[in-house]
Each structure stands twice: as structure tokens, then as C-alpha cells.
Simulated assay, not measured.
Amino acid sequence: MTKTPHNHLRFFNKVTSTFRHPEVPNTSIKLLLFPFSLDGEARDWLDKEPPRSILTWDDLVSKFINQFFPPSKTTYLRNKITNFFQEPNETFNEAWERFKGLLRQCPHHGFSELHQLDTFYNSLNSNDQDALDSAAGGNFLDKMPQEGLAIIESKSKVRYSRSRASDSRVSTDAPLSNSSPSNNSFDMQQIAASLEDKMTIKMKP
């Protein structure tokens, strides 16, 4: 499985935010539609869940993340973030992109923005630290997190823009499937028809 459960949920929430029904909560709609967003290993996992073992959307999200992003992986990535260090031949831009990549891999890392910037600053070589201090007009770490982030992004602006252009060619919010969202595993007409059927059943006394 190459996509993270967090990316999958972001994509799924974006799609289902367009679905509305006056008599059905949005979380119920999500529960009804979620199986259609899965394929392969993820679909097999959900099919094997015991009947009535998932009663709410929060239950499903929790089980889904724990299944495909176990606590051990969270601990591993949190340690990589905490112990991040700029490589000897790594440029400032490369180090920043790599650090952000680690944060994206573990979006529930729990580190505050201040902690993130402090970790990144202290991981840099002295020349890059001096450059950030100079751009900050003093000690970089005295700045508020949003100011510090703006300084870093400004310093890496050219590289960051190229990275964004490259990232736009590769979707990071695709479903947990080997196929694209337009595939039958997530076909919008199929979902709409099933939603109508399931809601009819759901709303019967």
C-alpha cells in the first residue's frame, strides 16, 4: 500500500463534502460511501471487520488509521522528525523539503509549529542558521512561528515553487487503490445510486 490513510481520508472527505441529504447526517453519508472508496488490501480489511463493529464515523476513522498507520510507525516517524539533521552535502532547500516530507508522512505527529521550527533550525549547519538569523534581523527563534515559517519559505522560494510544480503532477490525495479515482472502484454514478438505495433502507422504520 503506497498511499497513507490520511491522504485517503482527505480525498474522501473532499468528495463527500459535496453530498447532502436533509434527513441524514453527513457522518452517516460518509459511513455509507466509504466502502466504495476502497480497493485491494483496504477493501479486504473492511470486509473482514465483524458485523456492527463499526457504529460511527469516528470508529471507522480510528480503526482505519490504526490498521494502515500503526502506533509503531507513528513512533518511528516522530523519532525521525525529532532527530532530524541536515546532511553534510544537503542544501537548505533540500533539507527543508525533506523535513516537510517527514511532517506530511505523519500528519498526526502532535508537534507544535514552534517545536517544528525549533527542530529544523537546530538541525541546520551554522551557515544556514546565520542566514536565517540575518533574515530575521536577530535570533530566528525569537520570531513567532508564522513569521519564522514565512522567512524559511522565502529563503527556499525558488526551490519550493519547483517542488510544488513537481508535486502537482503526482497526486498525494489519491484513494487507497492501485487505480485512479475515476476507476469503477470510486465511480460517482455508482456511489450516487448506492447512496439512494442504502438511504431508503436506512430510513425505513
Rank of each mutant, 00 (worst) to 15 (best):
S28I: 13
I29L: 15
L32G: 05
F34H: 15
F36S: 15
S37P: 02
L38D: 09
L38W: 11
D39A: 13
D39S: 14
E41H: 09
D47W: 01
D47S: 11
K48V: 03
E49A: 07
E49L: 14
P50W: 10
P51Y: 05
S53C: 04
S53W: 00
S53Q: 04
S53M: 02
I54G: 07
L55K: 12
L55S: 13
W57V: 00
D58R: 12
L60K: 08
S62N: 12
I65K: 05
F68K: 06
F68T: 04
F69G: 01
P70R: 05
K73A: 03
T74C: 15
T75E: 14
L77A: 01
L77M: 01
R78P: 01
R78I: 02
N79W: 02
K80R: 13
N83I: 03
Q86L: 03
E90D: 13
T91N: 14
N93S: 15
N93Y: 12
N93E: 15
E94N: 14
A95F: 08
A95Y: 09
L103K: 07
R104G: 09
R104Q: 07
C106W: 00
P107K: 05
H109A: 00
H115L: 10
L117T: 02
F120I: 08
L124Y: 11
L124G: 04
N125H: 14
N125W: 10
S126V: 13
S126W: 11
S126I: 14
N127F: 10
Q129N: 11
Q129I: 04
D130Y: 15
L132G: 06
S134T: 12
A136E: 06
A136R: 01
A136H: 06
A136I: 05
M144D: 12
P145M: 03
L149F: 10
A150I: 05
A150G: 12
A150F: 11
E153C: 12
